[in-house]
Design a protein around this nucleic acid. Structure first.
Length: 489
RNA sequence: CGGGGCGUAGCGUAGCCCGGUAGCGCGCCUGCUUCGGGAGCAGGAGGUCGCUGGUUCAAAUCCAGUCGCCCCGACCA
């Protein structure tokens, strides 16, 4: 049945489409544990490439990796009032170990601020010990009510950077710097454009002074918070007695930041780039960039075409490209499956470039390159296939970002929207709406109540409208900041 | 936790009202023919019908209970 093979269309049921893509492209699968998923090799391969690139960027900005325990003493969590209040409802608690009740319950980390700053307090005596710039790659647990593959699971993988500084200014710069790193990564590698800005009180991280965020627009026009960076001020330093002696001889509390991105990014990748044929992976993150499909009729052709396919792979692997690393190539020479079936399979999995080689091509010393993003086919000479493939991959990467940005702008509304119109938009197609805000949390809450839309961020300057809004979207009094409103994941 | 739905082969499902040998599609295995956009034919493997109890000569089917999952609402990367 042909219908069994087709995905639900995005326009029919976006949520069903998303689940099918994740499962059928073999990125992840449901596990026997409620709310927890298994990340399969094709999904984990993308995560590994994300990790590698981010890790490089963290190192380039002076950070080192370390590892802190999974378990956090309950008393640690309780030391920062807002923090415990924010996370208590969603923590998993270990009460027994080795068959005995523990004297003090252990929290399975939902995030590691408390244990990390407790350790920093031990390591820091003087301003000479600062800054501390540490990142850890870890799993965390948050006991969510409703889960979605990659977007919200009880356990997920992430990185959390934790830094300590001598001045607030330096910490503030760090928080902004890492937000910039996230943005560069999301746009440069994921081809996922983001709006950056600062969160309102309602959406701020529990225990932070300021939370900065990257917000991306998914194809259903909802916002995905894809990375956050926090200026923690001295809140945790005070809770954990993280003090240092200044150059002048006084004693001060250190200033902290924390910042993180998670496997949620994979969900963002799917919902940013996927189409009705399946996943589309930007080349820079694709574990396989090029799949070679040999085509044959006779036994005789089969031999020579398969041999040619492997030779082409060797040729591609030896190509010196401008970016680090070799081309990542796979030859699909499985017997008993027709080429067409292979095309559908690799398209579903989102491989950016397909190379078809058949007897007729071989006779003409050429191959066919097919782009996953546009479907456009092109014949190339076997003598220049490496260069052509590398160029196309580069072009695909660029095109995906441009297309995603165009889609976002097309679904963004700016300038003088009435609240009635706003409600229509949020009940209809949704999107990003830039509008004024009076600064009162009551207006924000009322809008959330009535439309489900929230302020995703107060956008950074480059994202703001040329003409600043004058009045609050809700109450009509003077606007103190332009806000980006949207429904969110 | 409130509302709605569903548990039958790896996946999707029919059968249930009206009890009586568990069926179909996809996938899987073998063979032959195929192979430039989801192949065809032939043969084959695969099921404690979520679980427990009850009614009955007999339960996927009727009754009671229970567990799990999915969808919609309040929290969240």
């Amino acid at each position: 049945m042909a219908d069994d093979k087709k995905l639900t269309k995005r326009s029919e049921d976006f949520s069903a489409w998303y689940n099918e893509v994740v499962l059928k492209a073999e990125l992840a699968d449901y596990s026997p544990v409620r709310g927890c998923m298994v990340i399969r090799p094709r999904g984990y391969g993308i995560w590994e490439r994300m990790q590698h690139q981010l890790d490089t960027m963290f190192k380039e900005t002076g950070h080192e990796n370390a590892y802190f325990p999974l378990f956090i003493p309950e008393s640690f969590m309780k030391k920062e009032a807002e923090h415990v209040e924010g996370f208590a409802p969603e923590t998993a608690v270990v009460t027994h170990g080795g068959g005995k009740k523990l004297e003090e319950p252990l929290i399975v980390r939902p995030t590691s601020e408390t244990i990390i700053y407790a350790m920093y307090a031990k390591w820091v005596q003087s301003y000479r010990d600062l800054p501390i710039l540490i990142n850890q790659w870890a799993n965390v647990v948050r006991w969510e009510m409703r889960t979605r593959l990659f977007l919200r699971t009880l356990e997920f993988l992430w990185q959390e950077g934790h830094t300590a500084h001598a001045t607030h200014e330096e910490a503030g710069e760090e928080a902004r710097r890492m937000l910039g790193v996230y943005r560069d990564f999301m746009e440069g590698y994921m081809a996922m454009p983001v709006v950056t800005g600062v969160k309102t009180d309602a959406e701020r991280f529990a225990g932070a002074l300021q939370t900065y965020s990257c917000e991306a627009m998914m194809q259903d026009n909802k916002a995905l918070q894809s990375g956050t960076s926090h200026d923690l001020g001295q809140n945790f330093a005070k809770a954990f007695d993280l003090r240092f002696q200044t150059e002048a001889g006084g004693i001060e509390f250190a200033w902290n930041t924390s910042w993180g991105v998670s496997t949620r990014l994979i969900g963002g990748l799917v919902m940013t780039h996927g189409d009705d044929n399946g996943l589309r992976v930007p080349p820079l993150l694709a574990p396989i960039e090029i799949v070679i499909v040999p085509i044959w009729r006779s036994e005789e052709d089969k031999g020579r075409v398969k041999a040619a396919a492997h030779l082409i792979k060797e040729s591609l692997l030896s190509w010196e490209r401008r970016i680090p690393g070799r081309l990542r190539v796979h030859v699909d020479d499985r017997d008993g499956i027709k080429p067409g079936a292979k095309y559908f399979e690799w398209e579903l999995r989102g491989i950016p470039l397909r190379l078809e080689i058949g007897p007729r091509d071989l006779d003409q010393n050429q191959a066919i390159l097919v782009r996953r993003d546009t479907g456009v086919k092109r014949a190339v000479s076997l003598s220049s296939v490496g260069e052509d493939a590398a160029d196309l991959l580069h072009l695909i990467q660029e095109t995906m970002l441009i297309d995603a940005r165009e889609r976002r702008e097309h679904n963004s509304i700016r300038g003088g929207i009435t609240y009635a119109r706003f409600r229509e938009v949020m009940e209809g197609d949704g999107g990003f709406v830039y509008a004024g805000w009076c600064g009162d949390a009551k207006c924000e809450a009322a809008i959330k109540e009535e439309t489900k839309a929230t302020i995703r961020v107060l956008p950074d300057e480059e994202f703001r409208s040329a003409e600043p809004p004058k009045t609050c979207l809700k109450c009509g009094s003077a606007s103190i900041a332009e806000a980006l409103w949207a429904k969110a994941y």
